[in-house]
Structure formats: C-alpha cells, structure tokens
Design a binder for these strands. Structure first.
Lengths: 259, 259
DNA sequence: GTCTCCTAGATTATCAACAATCTTGTGGAC
DNA sequence: GTCCACAAGATTGTTGATAATCTAGGAGAC
C-alpha cells in the first residue's frame, strides 16, 4: 500500500535511493533549500512508493485515491503524476489515467547497457578527478563489501555495492551523467536484487569492483572505464541468463508475461 | 517571440528536431495516436519555441502571458512547464516561476560527453542490428553530405549530419538510448551550429562520419563504437576550443547571444 | 543622502466545481 | 446463447476563482 501522511525529507530513507548527496545541483525544482511544497512532497512520496514496491508495476493510479492517501488535493497528485510520467516511472494514457510502468526484461537489458556506458564514463572521470580523500573513501567502501561477503551478508553486500557506485559517481563530478544514471536506476527496481543471488556471482562481483577501484586509485582513466564496462557487462549477461532460466522453469507468472 | 495559434503537428518543422520517427514508442503520453490534447500541443509548442530560440535562455516564462499566446488556459501552460522542467529545458523556482534554462559551456561539454558514449553505444548496436536496407540508407545520407560539402553548403551539411546520426540511432533499435539522446540534444540548441563553422572542421567531420559508416556496413561493432567516440570527442574538443577562443576575443557578452 | 519598513501590484500556488470521456453492467434482439 | 445498444457510474480533463507569495517602489527616519 502506501503509508499516508507527510514524508520526512531529512532522512533519505534507509534504503538506497539514488546517490543521496550526489555531486551537487538538486532537482530542477527547488534550487534553493526551501520548505518542500506539498507538490514536491507528493512527487517524492509517489516516487519512493513506486521504488519501494508499494505501488506495483501496472497498478492503476487513481487520482482521488492517491489524493486522499497523501492528504493533498487532486491537482497536486495530478502534477506529480505528470512529472513521474516525464521521467518514465508511470505511463499516462489520455482520459484513461496513469499506470506504474512495467519495464520488460528487454528494456531492463537496454537500461543496463546504457547505465554501463554512463557509469564507465563516471569511472573514467573519477580516475581523473577524484581527490585523495575520495579515493580513500572508495577504498573503505570496497573493504566493507569484502567483509560482508565473508560473513555471507548478501544484503549488506548489495548495499555496499550501491554505496560504491554512488561514491564513484560523486567523485566523477559529472552532474549530467549522475542525473541520468539516477533516473535509470529508478526504473530498475524490479530487478534489483536478482543477480547478486546467482551462486558465485558475488565473489566475481567483488573482484570486478576491486579492479575498478584499483584503476581509479592508479589514476588510470582507460583502465577504470574498461573495468566498469566489464563489470556491468557481466551484470547484464547474468540478468539475461537468469531471465531465460526463469522462463524455462515453466513459470508463466513471470512479470505480466508480455511475450 | 512565439507565434500564437495552434501548431501544425503534421510537418515536424523544417529544422532538425530530434530523430523524427525515431525507433518507435512515442512519448510517455499519447501511446495511441489520438487527437493531441491541448496539453500536449502546448507542451510541444513551448518545447519547439525554446529549441527554435523564440524563447531565449534565462527568459522568464509568465504563465498568463504564455496562456494567452497559446490560447489555452493557465493550468495547461502550467503542466506543460512542469513537464519541461522535468526534462531540463526550463528551471522552475517555487513561487517565482519558470525560466528557460541556460546551459553553461561546462554543461555543454558534459552533455556532449554523455552523448558521445550513448551514440557510441547506438553505433555499436547499429553495426549489429541494422538491416541491409538501413545500411544502404545510411550510406546514401553520407553521400549527400559529401555532395553538400563539395558545394560549400555548410547548412545543408549540418542538416545531413543530423540525419546521419538519426539514421544510425534508428538502425540501432535501442529505445532507451534513443530517448536519452533526444533529451540531451534538446538542451544543446545554443551550440548547434558552432563547431561546423571552424575552418577545416567540416572536411575532417566528413572523414569521421565515413569511418563510422564503414564500420557499421562492415558489421564491426567495436570499430563503429570507436569511430563514433572519436568523432564526438573531436566535436567536444572543437567546442571547448572555440569557447575559450571566444572568451579570449574579449567578448564578455558571451552567453545569451546565439553566436 | 542612504537605509529600512511598508504598501501596492504582479505572479504563482492551490483548490473546488464543472465538463468530457471512458468503463461497466444491464436489457433486448436475433 | 451470443451479440449489440444503451445507460449509469466512475474517472479524468479543464476552467475559473481564491489564497499565498514575491517584487518593486515610495515614505519616513536617521
């Protein structure tokens, strides 16, 4: 469902939203810090509800219903939906309302491909631009990931994974890429924790991340880019494999079986 | 300024908007063809007005004014502005309205960098996925570019340039990348025709494009990607050079002049 | 003369009512 | 029994009015 009431914008939720403080430059709206308008609150609340899975893919979003849940007027919900539509999280059909967008397996692969080249760019930039302080931080995150993997804490590992990517993006100082990556990540909720559960994938993943960090620390942009591309390329093929595997397991209830 | 009245959606304007028929899948709204609602019309009209330069960067956008010009209600203008804000064309400041976003020289470089890696991806995909028919078409576009360069038709060459990139993107069949590239292109109006005017740049540009086309025709994804990156890398450095050159020419009023 | 406070105008933000459209269910014809 | 037409309900689209906020200019104090 969707818990009603105002949201607390102070804490960006326990989960891993997009790189929180990010590089800089906030959303196009609210450039100065300013009491978040109810419009912004509604937008953020819906965004997180989708991200959190409270609003399921293909679920129909009825304006009056959301309005009463969020305790705002319908117009506010409406503009929030327009914004969400614009960044691809919901689909707006004229006169027929809004659905949470369901991204197909194929789209997920496309999104990962794009993310791969964008994050490769940030890895490259990070190798050039990261401060010594940031390199230390990145190394620390990697170490924590290794510890969690040792103690079989896959969820913690996955979280560290997100943190590492976020740290690299922050160090890259590339707002344009950062913003696009954040937008893409927002569309991939459904496939978040799938790949890391593949047997043996986690160990391999750690090696790949280590290579990326090495390259950045060595100030080698080319190597950093290659390492990042290799890493996300593996994620992509792992995802594609598990997808077909799931299909072959004769499970027709996968997604909405669009195929 | 901004010519009032309804827009003619039949002809996508003489200029080179984003890859017109593109791969497929239209904007998030209006998935079925359906009489464009006044909301969509207003959105498109404003979008093109910004793209065309009728609305200058940093120009303040007053809702009632736009409403009367477009002959729609203020609410319609408002949601159009929200959408434009969401895709980065205008900046919305709470209680203070909307401005056309001015992209700085630095942001332009960032945007080009991102475009470079994304279009490199599409070049790669095109090398894998293009039909024979599409390869022929791409070659034809390149030939036309050569002819126009021969006859010193730089504007026509520039148009062919856009067509070639569009054709490659279409052949790539990668909706996610296509959509992002279109969004990025929309933010770069101000720097559109600058680089091609640098002496000797056009000839070099043609060679670079030829290399890309060769690689796609040869079904060599790696080569296609490298060639595209080289090409847009050169565009980027050319842009950066002319930018500093202009600055050194002691022209402090650089900025809003379309140059 | 310069600064601060305050008022008037302009503009945006929000809301509630109305109109247009779609969806669903019922009844009748064949 | 199945299909089509139609009506009722539900939902979205649009508009205009009202409230909140900001901006600019002037009066007054020092």
């Amino acid at each position: 469902m969707l818990r009603a009431g105002k949201i607390d914008r102070g804490t960006p939720a326990a989960g891993d939203e997009q790189p929180p403080p990010a590089a800089g430059q906030q959303a196009t709206t609210t450039p100065r810090r300013r009491a978040a308008s109810s419009a912004d609150e509604a937008y953020e609340e819906l965004r997180q509800a989708i991200h959190r899975g409270d609003l399921m893919p293909n679920e129909r979003l009825i304006e009056v219903e959301l309005a009463s849940r969020l305790q705002v007027s319908r117009g506010v919900v409406r503009t929030a939906l327009v914004r969400l539509g614009q960044d691809g999280l919901v689909v707006l059909t004229p006169n027929r309302g809004a659905h949470v967008r369901l991204v197909s397996e194929e789209e997920a692969v496309e999104i990962l491909q794009v993310r791969a080249v964008l994050e490769a760019l940030t890895a490259r930039q990070a190798a050039s631009n990261a401060t010594a302080r940031e390199v230390t931080e990145i190394r620390a995150v990697l170490d924590r990931m290794a510890q969690r993997l040792d103690s079989d804490d896959l969820l913690g590992y996955s979280e560290g994974n997100a943190n590492l990517h976020a740290a690299i993006i922050a160090a890259a100082r590339h707002d344009t890429a950062a913003k696009l990556i954040a937008g893409l990540r927002g569309q991939l909720v459904r496939f978040q924790y799938r790949t890391i559960l593949v047997p043996g994938r986690a160990a391999q993943s750690l090696d790949e991340h280590a290579a990326i960090v090495e390259a950045i620390a060595a100030r080698d942009p080319d190597a950093a880019e290659v390492a990042m591309r290799r890493h996300l390329g593996h994620v992509e093929s792992t995802l594609a494999d598990t997808a077909t595997a799931i299909r072959h397991r004769a499970d027709p209830s996968d997604g909405t079986h669009p195929a």
